[in-house]
């Protein structure tokens, strides 16, 4: 495939993404929910800091607190990833797309590149906004971007959001149906993953789930619960993402459209 060919397909995918309203709304929701919820929780904790136990005060991580909205806001990015891919199937647009770009790997790569770039930009904007606005309401308990590990956590937060959207895209290529994708991914990331990582019986395995491992990068203070560092955590998440994308590619290649 020539560079010219790649440019055309990327442009076409960009047109597809920007011409559908659901894309815009999921991304706006991701920013608003993550930042607003982060500010709310930062404000509450900052206000009640004196009520925290000595241990909680010792390990207080103002950076991570400002990302408190991520657990909910990430669902909007997952929705974005699901919609970008599975809408092609639910509307039948995939047939038009594949007749225009019949080499399936090319279509998939172009869609992933455009959607992931967009999710990454939105993730970075969200992460930096959540950090600075969160710190502003934390007041005297806040930290600043120059402190050790803080910039890494904020930048990593943006990467995390890009990766979680990419994971959703891989899952949606595999599952095809939007209902199935939403039905599996949303409960999993909203509830199940958190339970698995906190129940003693499943804790050890739970730490290696994509969102649990990936979110380690957003912590500046190591609470000692996770058996890996920030970048190793992000690497574990990346492995999950690659796995989901490979599964999606295998399905796209093998199955009839």
């Amino acid at each position: 495939m020539s560079a010219e060919n790649a440019r055309r397909v990327l442009l076409s995918e960009w047109t597809k993404i920007r011409s559908v309203r659901s894309t815009l709304w999921t991304l706006v929701t991701a920013i608003v929910v993550t930042v607003a919820l982060g500010m709310l929780i930062s404000g509450l904790i900052g206000h009640n800091f004196d009520d925290l136990s000595p241990h909680e005060r010792m390990t207080f991580d103002p950076t991570f607190i400002s990302f408190a909205g991520t657990s909910l806001g990430q669902l909007a990015l997952i929705a974005f990833g699901i919609l970008v891919v599975s809408n092609e199937y639910s509307t039948g647009m995939i047939r038009a797309s594949l007749t225009a770009v019949p080499v399936r790997g090319v279509l998939m790569a172009a869609k992933l590149a455009v959607a992931a770039a967009l999710a990454l930009v939105v993730g970075m904007v969200t992460s930096f906004l959540a950090f600075f606005l969160g710190q502003s309401v934390l007041g005297e308990h806040s930290t600043d971007i120059g402190q050790p590990g803080v910039l890494r956590a904020v930048f990593g937060g943006g990467l995390y959001m890009g990766l979680i959207a990419l994971f959703a895209m891989g899952a949606a290529w595999t599952l095809r149906s939007p209902m199935l994708s939403f039905g599996i991914l949303i409960p999993f990331f909203f509830l199940i993953s958190g339970i698995l990582a906190n129940v003693p019986a499943t804790e050890k395995v739970g730490h290696y789930l994509p969102d649990q491992a990936g979110s380690r990068v957003m912590r500046v203070m190591d609470d000692g619960e996770q058996p890996y560092g920030p970048w190793a955590g992000l690497l574990i998440m990346t492995i999950w993402v690659v796995g989901a994308l490979l599964a999606g590619y295998a399905v796209l290649r093998k199955r009839d459209a």
């Binding site: 442009l11 597809k16 559908v20």
Partner: peptide, 21 residues
Amino acid sequence: AKAVHPGRTAYHHLLCLAQSN
């Protein structure tokens, strides 16, 4: 079977196809 996203305008539907080819 339909091969059009109902939420994408007729113009943009044709635009994305034209750009890719």
